[in-house]
């Protein structure tokens, strides 16, 4: 039963998502597919950070009547870790910006060579 806790399950999910994302980045030849793999890797890392801050049986870090007058009578025993959530919040928005930037580069590359296969871009290869 210990292996079916939410914290452990989400940890395994995030590890597998990161590995799938790396696999896609390394094995795909199409630039758009590489960017899709990058977004999956991004999601995996965010899930990993949030799942490290999760504590079993606690609620969201918002202080209201249900937290301060709950059965524990103490904020410290009622909420999950707020710091990873604050970090991931900005990381998601940055991830969107990076994805948009990568797509703009991909569009520029496509205009230059009319192809998206990564093997065709060998100008600097020697």
């Amino acid at each position: 039963m210990e292996y079916l806790q939410l914290g452990r399950i989400s940890l395994i999910i995030s590890f597998l998502l990161i590995i799938i994302g790396f696999w896609g980045i390394l094995s795909q030849k199409n630039i758009i597919k590489i960017i899709v793999s990058f977004t999956i890797l991004d999601t995996g890392i965010n899930v990993l950070i949030v799942s490290l801050g999760y504590l079993k049986g606690r609620t969201a870090p918002i202080i209201d009547a249900s937290v301060s007058q709950g059965p524990n009578h103490n904020v410290l025993n009622a909420i999950v870790d707020p710091v990873p959530q604050a970090l991931v919040l900005t990381a998601i928005v940055i991830g969107f910006g990076v994805t948009a930037l990568l797509l703009a580069y991909a569009m520029k590359l496509f205009k230059a060579k009319r192809t998206l296969e990564i093997n065709q871009f060998n100008d600097l290869k020697w």
Binding site: Q5, G53, L55, P61, L76, I79, D81, P82, V83
Partner: peptide, 14 residues
């Protein structure tokens, strides 16, 4: 699995 908030998180929460 953690069972308590660590230092800085506990300060922010309290």
């Amino acid at each position: 699995p953690k069972t308590e908030l660590n230092g800085i998180a506990a300060h922010y929460a309290a």
